[in-house]
Amino acid sequence: MTNNANVHLVTGATGTVGRQIVLELLNRGHSVRALTRDPAKAGIPGFPDGVEVVRGDLADPASLVPALEGVTGLHLITFDGGGFAALETGPEIVRLAAAAGVHRITVLNGGGDTPLQDAVTGSGIPWTVLMPVEFMANALAWAEGIRAEDTVREPFVGRLSAMVHEGDIGAVAAVALSEDGHGGQTYLITGPEALTIHDKADALAGARGRKIEVVELTEAQALEQWRAAGQSEEVIGFLLEVYGNTPPEGRTPIGTVAEVTGRPARTFAQWAAENADAFRRTA
């Protein structure tokens, strides 16, 4: 373990958001531990030198004791990394965090109240709940269809989304973990624009240098596509609800990123430029 007295432990560190929190903390000069259930099989290329990879499993709180040594900031996810079931181990994790002297905790909201989030917000340790809307990285689900057919096939193509760059979620988390003044806050995190499917396709087309056609699916066609992709009925029901009737918080840009980090939220055009190669044909 590192001997630095100001260490931040990031759980879910190989995920879309967790990876960004690790990188943001490191860029800000902090010592970072990335928690994984199996360091040997973590598959985490891209972590710079200086990130300490440690073993631990949120479903087995005793395994966290060594990882929590000397930790001042702790980022938590609310689900089991193996099966994505809601974790029931929150009270024990919080007890261990308090015993280790953790000063601040951030929690990535799991879509509603969860046992772990409830344990954290009732813990007495300064906490911040991160509540991002749709991730810009979700557009990677279109990559195969765009590479093969220059096409995006989606229902409800006129729906608006204030989707957020995953790096901005990481930036908000890093500030909340390392600076005072964010305890007891629930931060809704959005991007700077409300975009339709057509808007996103146009941004991706501009980034990759090739036109993209948008084909609107009926609800029945969308169900068939999602089931063919192996989505569970629970996930499909969620998608129908949020895509067919996106709540105001999912389609209304707000200034959390700028207010917390001191810089503007990144646009989808910026995300598209950063990830353009994923949408380009290879031959």
Rank of each mutant, 00 (worst) to 15 (best):
I254F: 07
A13Q: 10
G43K: 03
E213K: 14
A283M: 02
G184S: 11
T151S: 13
G183T: 07
G237S: 13
I93K: 09
A203E: 14
V129E: 04
D80K: 05
G237N: 09
A40W: 03
F135W: 09
E259R: 15
I197T: 15
N138C: 07
L68E: 01
A220L: 04
E154M: 13
G170S: 09
T114M: 11
R55Y: 00
E193D: 14
A5G: 07
G46H: 07
R104S: 03
L240E: 13
Y187S: 05
T121D: 02
Q20T: 08
A143E: 09
I236K: 12
P115A: 08
Q231A: 14
E149S: 12
E249L: 12
F84M: 10
A86M: 14
I125V: 14
G206S: 07
D199A: 02
G112W: 05
G181P: 07
M131V: 13
D80F: 06
A258S: 12
F79Q: 12
H198E: 11
A119C: 07
M131D: 10
D168F: 01
G73E: 04
G82Y: 08
P264Q: 09
L108E: 04
A220C: 02
L9E: 00
P248A: 14
A222W: 12
G244H: 11
T246C: 12
A194R: 09
K211F: 04
T72K: 15
D199I: 02
E149M: 08
P91F: 01
G124Y: 06
P91G: 06
N275C: 00
Q185T: 11
G81F: 00
R280A: 03
E249N: 13
F84H: 10
L64S: 06
A258G: 15
G73L: 00
